[in-house]
């Protein structure tokens, strides 16, 4: 029972993690229905030749693909056998399929004009320079981070900012905040995310409200470099990279948001519907008013001082005469 409970929680989390999106709502593909019948839920029924009866089996978590989630995914218009071998139509699936080659992104997207907008070549180049490529080489694939069955492009799919950040971070946290999954890709011991980021003020606030890749990738205005994940020691540790007028967050994470300076004329205001970042968001109008007032006060003081010193000097001279 406990096991089924866990599986249900995992499905719920998967659905919730993409529920912030507007949704592509691809139509249900009839050819996929037999697959969804088993893979769309946490438990499936199969015929046991030993027991000679139908038995209920739990579906492995990574193979559960809720129908709604798949419909909303970027690949939701594809038939299952477009990517998986035709032999999967046989149930139970032949054991040899376990070692079947899985398609990578490049198999479909690379070198095709239609998919040029995804900049796959530069994504692959970025990835090749990343710590993931260096540490794991060919054993690593796109699917280690991106689930093809629920994959959506976080920022350009008009997700609410919070959902986009949660979705982006879930790709990292699935391993970096999960000791079991981490062990599947690395021999090292997984360190608590909160502990490794405890140098940040308001650690949890930072971790929940910006993407891991905002600090852990090489920052340029080109979003495709987001795949060049840097080693922890080379990641951004300088607070002013975000907490300043030249905040990298305005150029990356919030680049899709519209500017709305408001009557107080805030700098980097495209951030402000979601967050308020000290140093980055500053009212230009208030700045001008405060500096003007301050200068006026100083002018009054210096004028007063000038006349006071002159009066005191005259008074002193008069006394000495």
């Amino acid at each position: 029972m406990k096991r089924y409970g866990l599986i249900l929680i995992c499905i719920f989390v998967s659905i919730v993690s993409v529920s912030g999106q507007k949704g592509r709502n691809n139509p249900i593909i009839p050819e996929n229905l037999p697959c969804i019948k088993c893979h769309g839920q946490a438990v499936y029924t199969t015929f046991s030749t030993d027991a000679k009866k139908h038995v209920r089996q739990p579906m492995e978590t990574s193979r559960i693909i809720p129908e709604k989630m798949y419909q909303n995914a970027i690949h939701g218009s594809l038939k299952c056998v477009d990517c998986h071998a035709e032999a999967y139509s046989t149930v139970p699936h032949p054991a040899a399929l376990k070692f079947d080659t899985i398609f990578s992104c490049a198999d479909c997207h690379a070198g095709k004009r239609k998919f040029k907008k995804y900049h796959l070549e530069s994504i692959m180049a970025g990835y090749d320079r990343s710590i993931h490529a260096k540490a794991m080489g060919n054993t690593y694939s796109c699917w280690k981070c991106h689930n093809p069955h629920n994959f959506i492009t976080a920022l350009s799919d008009s997700l609410a900012m919070k959902a986009a950040i949660t979705l982006s971070n879930s790709a990292c946290l699935d391993c970096h905040n999960n000791a079991v999954n981490y062990k599947r890709v690395s021999d090292k011991t997984q360190v608590s995310i909160l502990k490794s980021h405890d140098w940040l003020i308001h650690t949890e606030l930072h971790l929940k409200n910006i993407r891991c890749i905002d600090c852990h990738t090489v920052q340029t205005t080109d979003s495709t470099t987001a795949h060049n994940i840097m080693p922890a020691e080379k990641s951004i540790r300088e607070c002013t990279k975000c907490h300043s007028q030249k905040s990298i967050l305005a150029k990356n994470l919030f680049r899709m948001k519209k500017e709305n300076a408001g009557f107080l004329n805030f700098s980097n205001n495209r951030i402000m519907d979601y967050a308020f970042i000290m140093g980055a968001n500053r009212s230009i109008t208030l700045n001008i008013i405060s500096i003007t007032l301050f200068v006026i006060v100083l002018l009054v003081i210096f004028t007063h001082m000038f006349f006071l010193l002159r009066y005191r000097k005259q008074h002193k001279n008069g006394e000495s005469k």
Binding site: C239, H243, S244, Q245, K246, G279
Partner: peptide
Amino acid sequence: MMQYASPEWILLSLN
């Protein structure tokens, strides 16, 4: 220093 923080002039880290 917090309000006008900038990577160009750092006397002390923002932290």
